[in-house]
């Protein structure tokens, strides 16, 4: 952890400067996180008057609860599907834009703006489109004999949130893939062309391997996004339903804790998610160090 070669003589000033950030961090981050850990090991009596230590009970119960295990599975499906779809789509678009010279920035603008659409608005937009009574897509699907009703059909509900979440994330992935592609030296491409590789072969043997740091970085970011930033999408489209079919881990923390007021279980779920974010962050930062060398 470096500083400058020379530093200002320290008295109280540096403490004053970090104080606001640290106070907010301690009060609104560290303390609540600690509370979550603490209450994940405690149970309240029915009147909320006293708490007692119950050890790993909440955790053990969670992992024997089919609903929670199912939620883990659903979250995994959701996260992987969104990452693959939005990254794949974004990569195709980035490769296409990277081929262009004059119109590249116009296309970029047209592809970047969905980043500014909030998850909850994205949810509302897609919900409107897929609404079983007034939506345009169910109407179109009806013409090819597919009945769409995500309020009854869990698979369709999952498809809905996957589409909405992927749609919103394409811009972000596009931006980073494009930056990655632009940093591939043109001379490599030219050398491969002289060696007789066609454009498709060049992409898979030269460009894509060089993009792997970007791809890995985006995979981590996308997992993070689908796990934690998609609350608004779920809340605006399915509310976790039907019959828990889209109740992802984060949404479950909210419904069990804030709506269901099951403090112990919700806290244990929070702690499990924290462990997951910490793991993702550590992986990301280890990797960032390598990216600097690259």
């Amino acid at each position: 952890m470096d500083t400058k070669r020379t530093v200002f003589p320290a008295r109280g000033l540096p403490y004053l400067l970090v104080a606001p950030q640290l106070l907010i961090t301690l009060i609104f981050f560290i303390w609540p996180a600690g509370q979550a850990v603490k209450s994940s090991f405690e149970a309240e009596d029915p009147f909320g008057l006293s708490t007692r230590f119950v050890g790993m009970q909440h955790y053990l119960r969670l992992f024997s609860e089919p609903a929670y295990l199912a939620s883990i599975g659903r979250t995994a499906v959701f996260a992987l599907a969104v990452s693959i779809i939005s990254m794949g789509f974004a990569l195709i678009l980035a490769v296409a834009v990277n081929r262009l010279v004059r119109s590249a920035s116009a296309y970029s603008t047209l592809l970047l703006w969905p980043y500014a659409v909030s998850p909850v608005v994205a949810g509302i937009l897609w919900w409107f489109i897929f609404n079983s009574t007034t939506g345009i897509l169910p109407f179109a699907l009806e013409q090819i004999r597919i009945r769409w009703n995500h309020q009854l059909n869990g698979t369709q509900a999952m498809i809905l949130i996957i589409i909405a979440a992927s749609w919103k994330q394409v811009s972000y992935n596009f931006l980073f893939f494009l930056a990655g592609l632009q940093s591939v030296p043109q001379s490599l491409n030219e050398a491969a062309a002289i060696d007789g590789a066609g454009p498709v072969k060049r992409f898979w043997t030269i460009v894509f391997p060089l993009l792997s740091p970007t791809t890995f970085f985006l995979l981590i970011v996308n997992l993070n996004y689908t796990m934690f930033d998609t609350f608004g999408i779920v809340d605006a489209t399915t509310g976790g339903g039907p019959n828990q079919a889209t109740n992802t881990l984060v949404y479950k923390v909210y419904t069990d804790g804030y709506i269901g007021l099951n403090l112990g279980s919700s806290s244990a779920q929070s702690v499990i998610l924290m462990a997951f974010v910490i793991a993702l962050t550590v992986i990301q930062f280890r990797y960032v160090e390598r990216r600097v060398q690259y």
Binding site: L22, I30, F228, V277
Partner: peptide
């Protein structure tokens, strides 16, 4: 500046990355 507690302050700030509001809703 170089001051006692500097590295600790840095890590405390770093930790906020790992604690999105979604995972600590109730507390």
């Amino acid at each position: 500046f170089r001051f006692p507690g500097r590295v600790l302050a840095f890590w405390l700030i770093f930790i906020t990355l790992m604690l999105p509001v979604e995972v600590r809703i109730i507390p």
